[in-house]
């Protein structure tokens, strides 16, 4: 599975906001062996493109940069931010966020599909931040998206996978599209659960940035993602109701 032709070594993608310092961010990226990070342009840009220093630090991490349109509430804002991101980072990649609701930061799926259509037509490689809705997913694929990023739970809540059924259905519907659980992950066990569902990667920010020791937490997430993926590939057992002893029980009636 590749992300627009790129095969990352790590299936953990990290956000770059809210760390105590850029130095701590760098240690987290190194500790997790991450090679894709996402960075917000909208707020840092200011009105005069004043975010250059921070962007230089991000470029200095030596990893693939997935710029995002976090904080955009309209198609126009998102498209403009994506165009600016392409100039700043010299990449066609864009994590597309069009926020529809201020309290939950839920994606506006209508604006999202429209923005995705515009950006794909302009040659962008779009990573849309979406709900787990199958119909929205279809529309995004029609628009040209070759990666889908459903939420686990609202951004920054750390609640894990709110709708494992919906995420499983999405996986089953799109066996050939790389799927990334983006947002809502609070614990390494949430990340492992997403990977056990057969997701291709996990993208998170707050759970690492706001941890007491972000580098250690990043390493914990990296291992959880690896464990979840390995488990998925290994073929998990099916749960069943009747206990089945793992060693034979001798001297008892088999049917009682």
């Amino acid at each position: 599975m590749d992300f627009y032709g790129f095969i990352p070594r790590s299936r953990l993608f990290l956000g770059t906001a809210q760390y105590p310092s850029p130095a701590v961010l760098q240690r987290a990226v190194e500790a997790a062996g991450v090679d894709v990070v996402t960075v917000s342009l909208r707020r840092e840009a200011g009105r005069l493109g004043g975010g250059q220093d921070f962007w230089a630090l991000i470029r200095g991490l030596g990893v693939r940069v997935l710029p995002n349109t976090a904080g955009c509430h309209s198609v126009k804002e998102a498209v403009t931010t994506a165009q600016m991101a392409r100039e700043v980072f010299g990449t066609p990649w864009i994590k597309l966020e069009v926020i529809g609701e201020a309290d939950t930061l839920q994606p506006d799926v209508f604006g999202l599909t429209e923005a995705a259509r515009i950006l794909c037509a302009e040659g962008f490689e779009v990573f849309p931040y979406m709900t787990e809705d199958l119909v929205v997913a279809e529309r995004l694929v029609e628009a040209g998206c070759r990666v889908l990023m459903p939420w686990g739970a609202p951004i920054g809540t750390g609640k894990g996978l709110n709708n494992p059924y919906g995420l499983r259905a999405l996986r089953a519907h799109f066996p050939d599209i790389p799927l990334v659980v983006d947002a809502g992950i609070g614990l390494p066990s949430h990340a492992a659960a997403a990977m056990e569902l057969g997701y291709d990667a996990v993208l998170l920010n707050t759970a690492v940035a706001k941890a007491g020791d972000p580098a250690a937490m990043a390493a914990a997430f990296a291992r959880a993602v690896e464990a979840g993926r390995l488990a998925f590939e290994a073929g998990p057992m099916e749960p069943r109701d009747m206990a089945a002893p793992s060693t034979p029980v001798l001297g008892r009636a088999l049917l009682g």
Binding site: G46, R47, G50, G51, Q52, D53
Partner: peptide
């Protein structure tokens, strides 16, 4: 706290 050296007036 904004990662920017933009000194323009408060937004």
């Amino acid at each position: 706290m904004i990662e920017s050296d933009d000194r323009s007036r408060v937004s």
